[in-house]
Amino acid sequence: MTIWAATDWYAFFFLLFALLACGFAAAVLFTSNIVRMAFYLTLSLGATAGLFFLAGAEFVGVMQLMIYVGGTLVLLVFGVMLTARAPFLSLRPRSGEWIVSLIAGGTLLFLLIASAFGVRNWRTASDSGPLPLAEAQTATAVGAGLTGVRVDRLNRDAAGHALSQLPHTDSGYLLPFVIVSVHLLVVLVGAAYLARAKVRRRSATESTASVEG
C-alpha cells in the first residue's frame, strides 16, 4: 500500500509521456528508414500532446492531435509514399556529419538543460501553489482570445466576476488569427499550385503504341 501512497501520479504520467516523446524523437533521429521515421514522429508528437494535456492545455493538445498528427503528418506520409523509391527509402548520413552534428547537438542540449534549471522561478512551484486543474480548463478562454476578447485580462472581484471592460485597444489574438487564416488559405492554394498535376498529352497513335509495351 505504501508504494501506492508514495506514487505521484502526475510525475508518473509526466515521465511516461516525456520519455515517449523524447525516446521516439531520438528514434526519428537514429532510424534511417523514412517510413519508420514518420511512424516514430507520430508517436513522439502524440506523446507531446499528452504532455500538453498534463500541463492543462487541453485545447492545444487536441489541436496537436488533430492538425499536427492527423493532418500534417498524414500529409508527410503521403509525401513519403509518393517518393518512397527503394534507393531513397534509407539514405544514411555520412559518418563525419554524424560526429559534427552530435557534438553540436550535445553542446546545445547541455546549454538548454542548464538554462532550464538555471532560473529559480522555473525550478520551483510558486509559493501560492498551482491552480487546481479543474479551474485551468481553458478551451473557452482560448476561443474568446482568438475572437478578440482576453477574458484572462478582465479585472475580477473576489468572486471571480468580471468588473470592468477591457481597454478597446486590446483585441486579443483576433488580428493574428485572421492573418493566419488568410495565410493558410494562400499557402494551400500555393501548395496546390506547386504540386499540381501537369498533364502531358500524347497523340492518339502514340498512346496506343505506348500501351502495348
Binding site: 513522439s44 507531446t48 504532455l51 517518393t83 539514405l91 552534428s101 547537438g105
Partner: peptide
C-alpha cells in the same frame, strides 16, 4: 516544475536540429 517541461522541450528541439542537419532525405 516548468524546468522538467523545458528539458523535454530541449530534447525535442535538439533532436529536431540534428534531424535537420543529418537527414539527407528532404522529408
Amino acid at each position: 516544475t516548468v524546468s522538467h517541461y523545458l528539458v523535454v522541450g530541449a530534447v525535442l528541439f535538439v533532436t529536431g536540429v540534428l534531424c535537420m542537419a543529418t537527414k539527407r532525405n528532404a522529408l
